[in-house]
Simulated scan of single mutants.
Amino acid sequence: MNVIKKSLFRKRRKNESRIKYWMWLSHLYIGLLSSVIVFIMCVTGCLYSFRNQIINFSNKEKVYVEAGSGSVWKPGQIQEKLLKSGKELTRILIPVKKNESYVISYRENNIDRSGYFNPYTGEELGPPNTGSGRFFEVVLDIHRNLMMGNVGRQIVGASVLMFCFLLISGLILWLPKKLKFLKQGLSIKWNARFQRFNYDLHNTLGFYTLLVLFFIAVTGLYVTYPWVKNAIVISLGGESISNISKESGEDDPFGNLLGDMLEKQNEKKQLKDEDQVSIDKILELSHQYLPYNAVTSIEFPNKENPRYVVIKTNTENFLGMMLPDEITFDKKGNLKTKELFFDKPLNKQFTALAKPLHTGEIMGLPSIILYFIVSLIGCSLPVTGFIIWWHRYSKMKT
């Protein structure tokens, strides 16, 4: 027992600053306390990175189609075909790539279903295979709450907070005393003994991945803790949630929301007996207001929302990021709202992108690969850190 105590504590070295000394102790204690959960978070993050690609691969006979030379089925034709078989089309996703099928959502016997549709042959390709989807549901549940509900959610949140501290304290410990030692902290001595090699892996890889790991952790906390969400929104120029609830007036978001709800209710009454404009017309109008090629999602009017909702994923920017632009139309095809991503304030832009920023989907496959590599290194940090401590413990034991 004394050996364990000694391995968890050391006296301050000569010429060692108090900050670095206390950071060393805190880094050790918090690292050992949170290492298992941090490892699980990073492993599940690695697995989840390629979720869409793996699901598409497991459904490749449905996702990928042979691009025909003839005409492509229009959404209106798809809607008519589904109606004949007792299915009500509720949403359609139109890809940019010619060799990909459409994704359709519909109601059949009051049950919501989804599936793939070949736009060249008019063939319903059926729903996605559930095996890979269920696997990733389990992975996501572990990642969010260790499959322990709210208790697990709080454990994960606390561990991620500790991880943020570990990244900051690790940077402070990494900082070299003199500039001539900088190269040593930026490189790995591949031919060194195992303990030195392991130490370099922990220090150097931790430094190179620090910013991305910290960003992933913070965006994860954004979902877990309201106070983190509030802090980020305020720092980006938004209003505090508590302040919003107290304020009223022209710029009150809740007032605007209520006004929007009332307007939609009036639309339902006024346009109740009006003929609904065709989905093909809505698609044509959306191209006029958002004149660029992109993945396009169209949601049909329903009981909750009497409007067509069109979302186009705009990638026409310097980094090729997938940024959502949204427009809505009433049943007659009149434009009701138009929300361009770049017109939104910074806090609302972040809110719209919080999930793809956390998962790495924001720039497609290149950013997913980057996140996978960084998460993999994140998995190694608790392991290499534990080995550093275990070597210290073993030396004292002998």
Rank of each mutant, 00 (worst) to 15 (best):
L335D: 06
N317C: 09
E326Q: 10
N334I: 03
L346N: 07
K332L: 12
P301I: 08
I362G: 12
P324T: 10
E304I: 08
K336P: 01
V374I: 14
F342H: 15
L319T: 14
L346H: 06
L346Q: 09
D343Y: 02
F300K: 06
Y292K: 06
N334Y: 02
S297G: 06
L370A: 12
P301F: 04
F372D: 11
A354D: 06
T351Q: 10
D325Y: 07
D343T: 05
L319P: 02
L381T: 09
K338T: 11
P291I: 04
A352F: 13
E316H: 15
N314A: 13
P356R: 14
N347M: 05
A354W: 06
L370K: 01
Y371R: 03
V295H: 13
L357N: 12
S297A: 09
V295K: 15
F350S: 05
N314E: 14
P345F: 01
Y308F: 12
M363D: 00
L323W: 04
D325V: 07
Y371A: 08
I369G: 08
R307N: 14
L353N: 06
N305A: 01
C379K: 09
L381C: 08
S380Q: 09
A352P: 05
L323A: 10
D325A: 10
C379T: 11
E339H: 09
V295M: 15
G378F: 12
L381E: 10
G378C: 08
T328S: 15
L370D: 00
F318S: 01
A352C: 05
N334E: 06
P324N: 15
V310G: 11
N293K: 10
I377H: 09
E316V: 04
S375Y: 02
G360D: 04
S297W: 11
L357S: 12
F342Y: 14
N334D: 04
G333F: 14
L376R: 09
L335N: 06
T315A: 15
V309I: 14
Y292S: 03
K355P: 02
K303T: 03
S367Q: 01
N293I: 06
G333R: 09
G378Q: 10
K331S: 12
P301L: 07
P306E: 00
V295T: 10
